[in-house]
Amino acid sequence: MTEMMPKERIQRFFNREPVDVMPCFSGMGMVTVQAIEQMGIRFAEVHTSAEHMAHSAITTAELFGFDAVVIPYDMCTVPEALGRGVSLYHDSEEILYPTVPSKWATLDEVEIPTDYLGKGRMPVVDEALRIVKSKGDGKFAVGGWVLGPFTMAGQLIELDVLLKGTRRQKEKVENFLSQMTDLVIKVARHYQNLGVDYMNIREMGSGTDIISPRVWKMFVQENLQKIFSALKSPKILHICGSTDMIIEMMNECGADALSVDQKNNVAETRKKLGDEVLLLGNFDPYGTLVQMDASEVEQVIKTCIDAGVDAVWPGCDIWPDAKKENVETYVRTVRGYGKRPSPAVGRV
C-alpha cells in the first residue's frame, strides 16, 4: 500500500483502523521558532494575526513533517472574549504566551456575555482555522482544542477562590462549572463546525497535584461527560500533571482517546485500561526538545512507545524555542520505531 496522507492517517488512527506508521502530531501547541524566523516575524506578533497564526502552523508542520497543525495557540482567547483582557507581551524579548490580566475576584461577579464568539481574538482564531483548512487541508489534519471547564474556570476567576470553593462554596462552584461546561461545548462545537479534524479538551488544571480524586469526581467528571457526549468524534481528553489516581475516571468520560504527560505511569495505565483504549503521551516537551542533547531524544520517544502509547504526544505545548535537531529526532524516531502496531492501532 502506498504511503498514507497525514489527514487520512490521523482519521484512521482515531477510528482505530490500521495505519501505515505511527502518526506524529499533538493536540496542543506545535508552533516553533524555526517557522516564526522563516516568516521573518516575532513570536508576539503571531497571536493577533490570522495569517501569521495559520502560516506559522503550516510552516512548522512542513519543516518537521508533522501530520497535523493545531490552532489556537494560547489559552486566553476565550477569557479575553469574555472581557477579562489579555497581556500579549509585545515588548518582551522572551517567548511568552499571552496571559489573563484581570480575573473575576469572586464567584458573585461572574457574568458570561452571550455574544463572545465574535469578541476579542475569537474571529482571528476562526480565520486562522479557515486558512489552514483551505491551504493545508488534505495534506495535514487540523487539530483544535478548548480548555476543560475546571481549567477554564481557573482562567476566569482567581484560582484560590475556585479551589477553596470546592470545599466552602460547593453550590456556587458547581453552578459556575456548569456555566463553563456550556461555554466549552459552545466553543468546541464552533471549532468542529469550522472543520477541525479532531478536538482536544485540555482539562490541564485538574490533575491530582492540585485537587483530590474525590474533588475530581465531584466537580470535573460529570462536566466532562456532558462535554464529550455533546461533541462529535474524534475527541480527546488531555490532563497534564499527576493523573495516575484519576486515569480510570478519565476513561469514563466518553473521549475517544486519553492524553497524559510524563507524570503518568503509562505502562500501568495501559494495564489498568486495556489495549482497546487510545493512549497518547507522554514525554516532557520542554525537557526533551529544549534542554536535552539531541542524542538523548530517541530513547525518550522509544520509552513512550515501549510503555504502550498509540501515538507519542508531548505532555503540553511544544515550547516554540525547541532545538531543531531534537524535534527532527522526535519525528524520525516516531516514524522508525512506530512502524510496528501499537496496542490499540494496527498497521496495514
Binding site: D160, L163, K164, R167, R168, T208, I210, I211, S212, V215
Partner: peptide, 14 residues
Amino acid sequence: KHEYFVPELLLCAD
C-alpha cells in the same frame, strides 16, 4: 502524602 491537596493547603493557610 496525598491526604491534602491544594484546596486544603489554601484553607489551612487562611
